[in-house]
Design a binder for these strands. Structure first.
Length: 721
RNA sequence: GCGCCCUUAGCUCAGUGGUAGAGCGUUCCAUUCACAUUGGAAAGGUCGGAGGUUCGAUACCUCCAGGGCGCACCA
């Protein structure tokens, strides 16, 4: 059995064992916490709850996960030591779209493809794959020292989660908040699914910009291949240049494949200053055009199919891929004398899939949508009323801006890996309606045959409900005890994807905010501050750092100086420095134990004035650190403790004690020994949330019967003392 | 285009209305001492630029420059 007298400190010899002791103690479970100490009295009635953002079950943790686990564990251990009834619930995310993509790559390696596979078989394969990988993720969470309650762990595809998610859909449909609409959506041709707006990104790109003759007008476009069906020409109603053309006026124009009849439309969406101030519209493949068409009741026609090939409307170009068709169409326009000029350096933003970075093709598709305006109102009010706080505060503004400008949310996905949308669609009249029990076969409207919707929910539709679902809403007593939760700690990149959905669903379904505080951490980048990515080859594996330098060193290295919301540059040197700190704690302890084994710790001796000053000083630091922790300034608390332990306790106090214990006056010796032992004990408690393994290990070596993780926090918090 | 954030020591970053700190790195010295995963010391910054508020600004305000991030109207 490794002990304190081995040197130096070797984290990997202790960590696994310590975690096992914690887990077997049952204290991760708030129902099994020991009775409160005198200092903790009164606090055990208060709960402290964090729902862990469930890591993807499809593989190992990455650096971002280790940061959030550390932060949440710090909060949890701190509040547990303060005596609160502390619950931190772990979870595992099926991560719909993301996992399906990961599995598609697996299939590709095997020379297979999901297209053409039986959906049920594909689902089962992905499920097997995910459950297999879930173990690795969980082992990693344990390796990080997470003091979460595994007995309450939930998977996002657990039957009760699916059931309640589907019930929410039904309830929203009944309340008129979910509707089936034929609207423009983001279509990823590679993944063959629609995506919500937060699942797309903009990419800046240079493309040729074509100026084309359209009857008496000149229009400009970067996408001539979509223009076949353009029979509406739009201009601003106040544009003097075109005042001779009246709204609704018809014109005969020569177009790509011959003569067509064009209709003039006046709409204020047109920017008079851009290009020629005139454009033709393609409502099926452009969001702005779609809106214009909706406003004026115009016809819409699909030009490009779901695989990115031109449809018969393109005449001789039908069946061609976009890229091939574009140059040929331009060639033909030139021959016909319709091409006026080409601007070769046109810079614009294009929408791409956030996963594969392929171009998004806007398409009109019949999908389920959530009506956001009334729901967003609930969230806006809750935040404006101060019911939900943001750390750092400026995210409140960002959150509100997004909520105030939100648009209806497409929740249908054409992928199998997810929660099925419990709905039926009429094959005859096209109407869609929920059917939770899967019992309805006839359309209630026209009597036509109703078939099951094969789509699944957007992952965020279910993960947005996670806080109350994981607590067993509506019937479980955990929901009544622990909801609303205290903190939602997550990455600032999820400020739109996840946080607003949780607030909305919480307020809508559970009728209460899901959490009081949103703490947003920054992203973990490489040592130079560059985003980690496999293609750049700069990915740092946190678990390797943990093995090499110890989890405690990794944890405190991630925390010191890392202010909320700010991205972190993670370098190996940084972590190595904190391994030295762990060793410092180890050696200081050895000195203290070697020099205090002969004192009776149960009897406080006379303390000299000088030693009392040291204890008072530590008391002040404890209070200061506690205030920092209460205000989420972990980066400061950690740094202060580091500094105190090393440069005050080890460098000064211990050094001075060496003289004192050589004194002839026995009472001075006794006071000195008692004091350094006391300072060590208090320091270990203060350091425990940050560096749980080594502090717990030492605590046990010091002969304490109780686990440090449930000891009392040594400062003010309880002012009754 | 709009919004948010950042600019402080070689690097990564804290911080405060009274002319600056940490970690890592660098240089010099020490070493049978709990610890060489160490101790002691040192070098190193006109706190992005300009203006304003103030007795006083790195900190508060305005503008400018550079960098990062986010965003559903430029065909």
């Amino acid at each position: 059995m490794p002990s304190i007298f081995d040197k130096p400190y070797e984290p990997k010899e202790h960590e696994e064992n310590i975690y096992r002791i914690w887990e077997e103690s049952g204290f991760f479970n708030p129902d099994k916490l020991p009775p409160p100490t005198a200092r903790q009295a009164g606090n055990r009635e208060k709960t402290f709850t964090i729902i862990m953002p469930p890591p993807n079950a499809n593989g190992h943790l990455h650096a971002g996960h280790t940061l959030f686990i550390t932060l949440e564990d710090i909060m949890t251990r701190f509040e547990r030591m303060r005596g609160k009834k502390t619950l931190w619930i772990p979870g595992a995310d099926h991560a719909g779209f993301e996992t399906q993509i990961v599995y598609e790559r697996e299939l590709e390696k095997q020379g297979r493809s999901r297209f053409g596979m039986d959906p049920q078989k594909l689902y089962e394969e992905i499920l097997t794959f995910t459950l297999e990988n879930k173990k690795y993720m969980e082992a990693d969470v344990r390796a990080m020292g997470a003091s979460c309650d595994w007995s309450r762990e939930k998977f996002t595809l657990d039957p009760e989660i699916i059931r309640e998610t589907q019930r929410t859909f039904k309830q929203m449909f009944d309340d008129g908040l979910v509707y089936r609409g034929n609207r423009i959506i983001n279509w990823c041709q590679k993944h063959q699914t629609s995506l919500s707006d937060v699942e797309t990104e903009f990419r800046e790109q240079n493309d040729p910009f074509y100026y084309i003759k359209y009857g008496p007008f000149t229009i400009a476009t970067s996408r001539p291949e979509t223009k076949f069906g353009d029979k509406y020409v739009v201009m601003h109603p106040k544009d003097e240049r075109y005042k001779e053309y009246k709204d609704g006026q018809r014109l005969e124009v020569e177009w790509i494949n011959g003569k067509i009849t064009a209709t003039v439309i006046k709409d204020e969406a047109i920017d008079m200053a851009f290009g020629t101030g005139v454009m033709t519209i393609t409502p099926w493949h452009d969001a702005v055009d779609f809106e214009i068409a909706e406003r004026h009741g115009l016809e819409k026609e699909q030009i490009i199919d779901w695989r990115g090939k031109l449809l018969p409307v393109a005449g001789e170009f039908a069946g061609m891929k976009i890229k091939e068709a574009r140059s040929k169409i331009v060639e033909k326009l030139k021959e016909k004398g319709l091409l006026i000029k080409i601007d070769e350096n046109y810079q614009h933003n294009v929408k791409v899939c956030y996963k594969c970075e392929n171009l998004i093709e806007p398409q009109i598709k019949e999908q389920w949508f959530v009506k956001m305006k009334p729901l967003a109102k609930l969230a806006i009010d809750a935040v404006n009323d101060g019911k939900i706080k943001f750390i750092p505060e400026n995210y409140k503004k960002i959150f509100l801006y997004w909520m105030e400008n939100t648009i209806d949310w497409n929740i249908s996905r054409q992928i199998v890996w997810g929660i099925p949308i419990p709905a039926k669609l009429c094959e005859k009249c096209g109407v869609g309606f929920p059917d939770l029990e899967n019992k309805i076969n006839k359309c209630p409207k026209c009597g036509g045959e109703a078939v099951a919707d094969t789509d699944t929910f957007d992952t965020w539709f279910s993960s947005g409900q996670w806080p109350y679902l994981v607590l067993g809403y509506p019937d479980n007593k955990d929901f009544k005890t622990f909801y609303p939760t205290d903190i939602m700690e997550t990455g600032h990149d999820l400020i739109f994807r996840w946080v607003p959905r949780m607030v909305i669903f919480g307020l809508y379904r559970a009728k209460i905010i899901p959490f009081h505080t949103v703490y947003l951490h920054g992203l973990v980048n490489d040592a130079k501050g560059k985003k980690m990515s496999k293609s750049k080859g700069n990915v740092i594996n946190p678990l390797e750092l943990s093995k090499k330098y110890g989890t405690d060193a990794l944890r405190i290295g991630l925390i010191v100086g890392n202010t909320p919301g700010t991205d972190l540059a993670l370098s190996e040197d940084r972590i190595r420095g904190y391994k030295n700190f762990a060793n410092k704690i180890w050696n200081a302890t050895r000195f203290v134990l070697m020099n205090s084994s002969d004192i009776d710790r149960s009897k406080k001796p006379e303390i000299t004035v000088e030693d009392q000053k040291l204890l008072d000083e530590l008391k002040m630091i404890s209070e200061d650190v506690t205030t920092d922790m209460e205000n989420f300034r972990f980066y400061l608390a950690a740094e202060k403790l580091y500094h105190y332990f090393w440069h005050a306790f080890a460098d000064k106090i211990i050094e001075a004690s060496k003289e004192k214990i050589k004194n002839e006056d026995k009472s001075i010796i006794l006071s000195a020994k008692w004091t350094i032992f006391e300072i060590l004990s208090i320091s270990l408690k203060l350091l425990h949330p940050f560096m749980p393994f080594i502090t717990e290990k030492i605590w046990q070596e010091m002969g304490n019967k109780k686990l440090l993780m449930v000891e009392s926090w040594p400062a003010t918090a309880d002012k009754q003392k």
